[in-house]
């Protein structure tokens, strides 16, 4: 049986890491761990299509509306007990809870630890 039905719906091709041009070392927010801090460098609209209730452009707009914009400071605070999902992040001065699969298009340049 698949251990994580929701995550497994994401086709492998969508998981290929292509860091935003010009920003070396950025990672997807969906892969960050609690304690990670950094700056959002890119919010894209390019995730896997098909398995989502909304299209990628709509997800991007929602992320932007919740304050996930380039330049915002971000810190991952907590993660859920099951499959480390969802995550609670601090975006500038507010807290947002979101699923990792919805955080894939947010690219973060992490501070050196």
């Amino acid at each position: 049986m698949d251990p994580d039905p929701v995550h497994d719906m994401i086709p492998e091709t969508a998981k290929v890491e292509i860091a935003p041009a010009g920003v070396e070392g950025a990672v997807r927010l969906s892969e960050a761990k609690p304690g990670d801090r950094g700056v959002i460098v890119d919010v894209r609209a390019e995730r896997h299509a098909g398995d989502h209730g909304v299209d990628v452009g709509e997800l991007q707009r929602r992320l932007l509306e919740f304050g996930f914009v380039e330049g915002a400071r971000i810190e991952v605070m907590f993660e859920g007990a099951i499959w480390r999902d969802p995550i609670a992040v601090r975006v500038d001065d507010m807290r947002i809870g979101l699923r990792r699969r919805d955080a894939e298009d947010v690219w973060v340049l992490l501070d050196a630890r």
């Binding site: 209730g53 947002i96 809870g97």
Partner: peptide, 12 residues
């Protein structure tokens, strides 16, 4: 099948 809504929520 498939359609999973995004879950984004402010934690006030």
């Amino acid at each position: 099948r498939g359609a999973v809504e995004p879950f984004l929520m402010e934690l006030p």
